[in-house]
């Protein structure tokens, strides 16, 4: 009787256990994020910081050279994302399908080999590929020569029309291990009985993949797509390591990350402008937020899940 009067006891240990994560996350993620949003509303006039409302955004979208640079970076970002979606993810799924084949030998060796580039630093990847593709010292020209395709060799990283696609493919090479691992795990979790039941109904081989496995791994593909989207729209390191902050040639590899960096920290004779930089960062945040929302509400909620 006495204990029921007290009502449910407040469970302090929940707070205690949550506190470290909440505090750390607030200090290093949430605070900086809102501070960046706040910074975008200020500007520096005569060595004093003043509140200017949305003026920075008016400059960003209203003045031709700012707006052109922004839309150019956004367009490049979409192309970067598109290349990942049509190259990285299908190849990742294909590799996972091959790896999960029960009769494949040395599967774990391949799995590690394909995953290793993912843990390499961007600087190493950017520098290594720059050397490989270098028309002067690189091994790409001589390798193409060996198979009689020397005529296909071009200074890919130096031509406006190829540079961004080349960098996107380098990034695909680096990160193809992530979709592969996620899909591989999803494929392994499909119960044998489901496949056997299909087999009894006459669904084998490729048909089993398309009709049984693929629908079952669709949620994983959705997760991979959203990870790719967030990763690509936050990308910066590879472009910076390979092409520098000016994202040459002629801004053809400029994405939102490099555009933001150049504006925020300045470059060469251009002094940094934290307020315009924050305005661009806010734009990036809005775009990523929008993309994630579309995914969550339009796609994820309609996806069918199967329970075994």
């Amino acid at each position: 009787m006495i204990s029921s009067k007290k009502g449910p006891k407040f469970r302090w240990h929940i707070l205690v256990f949550l506190a470290p994560a909440v505090l750390v996350y607030t200090a290093i993620m949430i605070m900086p994020l809102f501070n960046t949003l706040r910074l975008a509303l200020y500007s520096e006039v005569d060595n004093a910081t003043v509140f200017v409302g949305l003026a920075n955004f008016r400059t960003l979208f209203g003045e031709a050279h700012w707006a052109d640079a922004f839309w150019n970076a956004l367009g490049n970002n979409f192309w970067f994302f598109f290349v990942h979606m049509i190259v990285q993810n299908p190849i990742g799924i294909l590799l996972a399908a091959i790896l999960s084949h029960p009769r494949l030998r040395f599967a774990s060796l391949y799995r590690s080999a394909i995953f290793v580039p993912t843990i390499l630093s961007f600087v190493i990847v950017g520098f290594a590929w720059k050397l490989i593709l270098s028309p002067i010292w690189g091994i790409a020209p001589s390798m193409l020569d060996m198979v009689g395709l020397k005529s296909l060799m071009a200074p890919w990283l130096g031509k406006e029309e190829y540079a961004l696609t080349t960098l996107a493919l380098i990034s695909v090479w680096q990160f193809v291990g992530i979709p592969m691992m996620l899909i591989y795990a999803a494929l392994l979790s499909i119960p044998e009985e489901v496949l056997e039941a299909g087999e009894i109904d006459g669904i084998t081989g490729a048909a089993a993949f398309w009709k049984i496995k693929l629908p079952l791994i669709l949620p994983s593909i959705g997760i991979i797509s959203i990870l790719t989207f967030v990763g690509n729209f936050n990308a910066f390191d590879l472009i910076y390591a390979a092409q520098g902050a000016l994202a040459g040639p002629n801004f053809s590899t400029d994405i939102l990350g490099t555009f933001m960096y150049r504006t925020f920290f300045g470059f060469q004779l251009q002094l940094g402008d934290p307020h315009m930089g924050s305005a661009i960062a806010t734009g990036m945040f809005a775009i990523i937020l929008l993309g994630v929302c579309i995914y969550l509400f339009a796609i994820q909620s309609r996806m069918r899940r199967y329970q075994f």
């Binding site: 270098s134 028309p135 002067i136 200074p155 130096g158 031509k159």
Partner: peptide, 9 residues
């Protein structure tokens, strides 16, 4: 300039 100067650093 050399061959492939577009990508020469």
């Amino acid at each position: 300039l050399g061959d492939g100067f577009e990508a020469q650093t």
